[in-house]
């Protein structure tokens, strides 16, 4: 069969959702941010929520998310997205509200805002991109940086005695009664993307039912920060990040997964 006969409108089975704009993503080649953006937008699209959704992206590589996500969006100060989301959701309880935050943002400068939004059980969804590093500012150590991992501010590797321990903030917030669904996912393979999408969709569905805060961590790569080509960085992530940040549901229906 000729390719020309296949490539026809009626045979289209997959293309980028219209909820992603046509702007070229500002991310480095192979960066998981793009995939994570797209699946969030696919879900908003599939659930018919575009006209009802407000997204909040604070400072980090994804600060320009509003250039790419075709929904109403608020750019927030570094770390403050959960507070901004609280302001929106409390005054518009029927809207769908989510934040999209990096690990420096969520687990360092914004720890207080994150924990308290979770603890209050704000009916919002937090998408947490954990790449173990500060991407935007050029690859400095993050709270999530693994032991021994080299970054521009831990050039000899993270020394736990001097620099503290990698923070599993997702396990931490899962302890709080305000969180209803907490999951850790990845987007490096087709299977991982499908799973992550299911988890994020579940999070948004729970938000519609006002059951509490839903939180999905996406363990992702930072090729530039890790100084690895994209495919190698995904391998490194599987070998090094996943043993420490184990994938899967952490809290389901308000109960910790044993």
């Amino acid at each position: 069969m000729d390719i020309k006969d296949i490539i026809k409108e009626e045979n289209l089975v997959y293309s980028k959702t219209k909820l992603m704009t046509d702007n070229v993503l500002s991310y480095c080649p192979g960066c998981g941010h793009g995939t994570a953006h797209r699946i969030v937008m696919e879900i908003i699209d599939e659930m018919g929520l575009q006209s009802n959704t407000i997204g909040i992206a604070p400072v980090g590589c994804s600060v320009l998310a509003y250039d790419f996500m075709n929904i109403d969006m608020i750019q927030a100060a570094h770390g403050r997205a959960p507070a901004v989301a609280t302001g929106v959701k409390r005054t518009w309880p029927d809207k769908t509200v989510f934040t999209y935050q990096g690990d420096g943002d969520l687990a360092a400068i914004g720890t207080a805002e994150t924990i308290h939004a979770c603890n209050r059980g704000e009916n919002i969804t937090i998408i947490f991109i954990n790449n173990g590093i500060y991407g935007m500012t050029g690859g400095q150590m993050a709270p999530t940086t693994l032991e021994g991992m080299k970054t521009s501010t831990s050039p000899h590797g993270r020394d736990l005695k001097k620099m503290g321990n990698p923070l599993k903030i997702t396990e931490l917030i899962a302890q709080l009664p305000g969180t209803y669904y907490v999951s850790r996912q990845a987007v490096h393979t087709p299977a991982a993307v499908r799973k992550a999408k299911k988890a994020i969709r579940k999070a948004f569905e729970i938000q519609q039912e006002n059951k509490g805060l839903t939180f999905v961590e996406v363990v992702s790569n930072c090729n530039s920060g890790w100084k690895l080509p994209p495919v190698k960085s995904n391998q490194w992530m599987v070998e090094n990040m996943f043993p420490f940040y184990q994938l899967g549901d952490i809290k389901v229906d308000g109960e910790l997964v044993k």
């Binding site: 507070a83 609280t86 302001g87 805002e113 308290h116």
Partner: peptide, 18 residues
């Protein structure tokens, strides 16, 4: 009642955005 002034002013920012 927010957890801090940082949170309070950013809640203001969020609600004012709407």
């Amino acid at each position: 009642q927010a957890e801090s002034e940082l949170a309070a002013i950013n809640m203001v920012y969020g609600a004012a955005s709407t």
